Amino acid sequence: MSTPPIPPQQPPVPPQQPPVPPGYGPAHPSMNPADEKLWATLVHVGGIFFEFLPALIGYLVLKDRGPFVNAHTKTALNFQLTLLIAEVVGWITALILIGIIILIAVYVVRIVFSIIAAVKANRGEFYTYPLAISFIK
């Protein structure tokens, strides 16, 4: 008795992926260097007017878009949170009058160092704020 011949096996065909609709590509495409510099600069300048909100939003939205913008949003958020703590201390101690001096110092420090950081970001340089507590590493 002879067995019937076995037909040759073909490799399995991988399942085909459906086409990706426009606008639904990779979750976080990287930015080009010019866009990274622009957003890093805007995060620092936004801190002058809106305190920690631009840095927080920038960090949450842009942290995965490139190493440069990630570093700048992180350092800006750490600095703005440090100043927020100083502001709270200033408002609490305002009744002793030292708080008014603290609030004025926070206001001046926020403007000066945010402008320095924005200029550095615009030049494509990394910057670390002095006196900032590292909440986010």
Rank of each mutant, 00 (worst) to 15 (best):
M1I: 14
M1W: 15
M1A: 15
T3N: 15
P8G: 12
Q10P: 08
P11Q: 07
P15K: 04
Q16P: 07
Q16D: 12
V20G: 14
V20D: 11
V20E: 14
P21Y: 00
P22V: 05
G23A: 06
G23N: 11
G23M: 07
G25T: 05
G25M: 01
G25H: 07
P26L: 05
A27K: 03
H28G: 09
H28D: 14
H28A: 13
P29K: 01
S30C: 02
S30G: 09
N32Q: 14
N32W: 15
N32T: 13
A34M: 14
A34C: 10
D35P: 06
E36Q: 02
K37C: 03
L38Y: 09
L38T: 05
W39L: 08
A40Q: 00
A40C: 06
T41S: 06
L42R: 06
G46M: 04
G46K: 04
I48C: 02
F49V: 01
F49I: 00
F49E: 07
E51V: 11
E51D: 05
E51T: 11
F52S: 00
L53R: 01
P54T: 02
A55W: 01
I57M: 08
I57V: 07
I57R: 10
I57S: 06
I57H: 10
G58L: 03
L60R: 12
L60F: 06
V61T: 11
V61G: 10
L62V: 09
K63Q: 14
K63T: 08
G66N: 03
F68D: 13
N70I: 08
A71M: 00
A71V: 01
H72D: 11
H72F: 00
T73P: 01
T73L: 06
K74P: 13
K74M: 10
T75Q: 09
A76M: 04
L77D: 08
N78H: 04
F79Y: 05
Q80W: 00
L81T: 09
L81N: 08
T82K: 01
L83N: 10
L83R: 01
L84Q: 06
I85H: 04
A86E: 03
A86Q: 06
E87K: 15
E87L: 14
V89T: 03
G90Q: 04
W91L: 06
W91I: 03
I92E: 07
T93D: 09
L97S: 15
L97E: 14
I98A: 07
G99T: 01
I101K: 06
I101P: 07
I101F: 13
I102P: 05
L103R: 00
I104W: 01
I104M: 00
I104S: 07
A105Q: 04
Y107M: 10
V108I: 08
V109E: 14
V109Y: 15
R110V: 09
R110M: 10
R110G: 03
I111C: 00
I111T: 04
V112M: 04
F113D: 04
F113N: 08
F113T: 00
S114N: 15
I115Y: 00
I116P: 01
I116H: 09
A118C: 07
A118P: 06
V119K: 13
V119A: 14
A121F: 11
A121T: 10
A121D: 13
A121R: 00
G124C: 09
E125L: 07
E125A: 12
E125Y: 14
F126E: 13
Y127V: 06
Y127L: 03
T128C: 12
T128H: 15
T128R: 13
T128W: 11
Y129A: 08
Y129R: 09
A132W: 05
I133G: 07
S134R: 15
I136D: 12
K137N: 14
